[in-house]
Every structure is written in C-alpha cells, then in structure tokens.
Amino acid sequence: MGEAIVITSGKGGVGKTTTSANIGTALALQGKKVCLVDTDIGLRNLDVVMGLENRIIYDLVDVVDGRCKIHQALVKDKRFDGLLYLLPAAQTVDKSAVKPEQMKKLMDELKQDYDYIIIDCPAGIEQGYKNAIAGANQAIVVTTPEVSAVRDADRIIGLLEKEKHMEAPKLIVNRIRNHMMKTGDMLDLDEITEHLSIGLIGIVADDDEVIRASNHGEPIALNPNSKASIAYRNIARRILGESIPLQPLEEVNKGVFGKLKKFFGVR
C-alpha cells in the first residue's frame, strides 16, 4: 500500500504546486513509483509546471464520473522510466464536480499501484480542500515566512489535526530570504516552528531558478546544482525516512579566504 501525501497551505501563492511537482520529482529520482494528483479543479496548473500540459487526454473528473479508466487519464512523464505519472485536474468544471467520498475511492485505488501519491491541494478550506484531504493519510503544510501565510497555515493545521485518518502534519517553510530573516524583516524560522509547533520536514530558500524552471515545465529538482533542488531532494529523502540535517541558511563562504574568515570568526 502506498502513502497518499497532501500538499496544502490554506493561503494561495505560497508554492504548493511547485512543492508538489518537486517532491514528486525528487521521490521518482529516488526510484519510487509516484503519482501526482492535481485537485485544483478549474484552476489546474500542476501539468504546466511539470511540462505535461500538451499530453492531457482525460482528467480527474472524467475518471470519477466513469468516462474513462484511471490508467487512461494518467499522463506518463517520459523523463522517468515509468516512475512518475500525473493525474491532471479538469479545467472546464469547478470543485463541486467531485465529492470527498469519490476522491477517497480514487486514492484507495491509486495506493495499490504507487509508492507515493502526491496530492496538490487548492488554496482555501472549502470543497476543494475537503476533496484533497479525503483520501490522504499524510499532510505537508507549506508556508512562507510571512505573517499572513503562517496564520493560514495555523488554521489549516487546526483543521488537519481534527482528521482522524491522517498522521500529524509536517511543515515546509518555503521562499526563505536569508538576508531578510537576519534583519528581522521576515519571520524567523524558530518563530515559525515555535508558533505552529509541528515537525519541520524541510526549508527551501527563495531561488530565481525555481521560477525559471517552472516556466520551462521542468521541475527544479531535476537540476542537481541548485540550492532549492537540494532542499527538495532532502525533503524527499526525509519522507522516505532518512534523517538528514537541515541545510544551513547561511551562504557557505566560498574559497579559501572565506574559510579563513570563518576560522577566525570574522563575519
């Protein structure tokens, strides 16, 4: 039986879809069989971020309504040898087209065939959210170091904690700008984790490369040289149960001079 992990946040625009795409990609890179499910019906874009938009034939609503079989709707990602699939959301209808019970049934079927199902949740706490969490047994809450995002994350965590079928949610702090955290213009990492008091599963620095990669339909996790990519790969390994320390936020001092400076404690 596979694990169904919902990626949620409450607030929009904190990076749920990017996170879903990259965690899915990173898990596939680890050799796991992964299915990405976009539940943002009516406003789909996980397919765009993955660069699979052109190959969609059927979607989630078609499957739920019985117009096609699951395997017909799944879009295979050719970059991975049969390890990564996407179940796209419908674009022509809205969130009320699916019921939580139907989602649960669908997830239970997918769990038979996949190691991990990554569910991209829409923003908000209404129907779309309820659909997304119905079939999940784990949750990852994405937030950014902003008061409004943390507030919404708090609300979502409160709702998730009430769900008896789910494990305690884990936290990702996304889009960290180290220089702003240092000056106190952004919420401190400790402040966030203390406030939300759930387990931190990863931190991702704000990186222009992420946006560039998304626009090209190539998840950043495929690029081994980017800091954000390493962060996502680490999150995937933590999901697999490895214990990996958090990446230091400080820019690693480059070169011999930097090392010397560090040695003498000069900042």
Binding site: R151, D154, R155, G158, L159, H195
Partner: peptide, 20 residues
C-alpha cells in the same frame, strides 16, 4: 489554533498556546 474556539462553563487550565 486560528479559527478554533474552546469554551467551558467552569474554570479552564490550558496546557498549550492560544494562537492569533
């Protein structure tokens, strides 16, 4: 947490926080 309400008729001892 945000959006949650805890109400009792007597006294309450909360071991934890009340978030904004």
């Amino acid at each position: 947490r945000s959006g949650q309400v805890l109400k009792v008729s007597g006294d309450i001892l909360l071991i934890g926080d009340v978030n904004p």
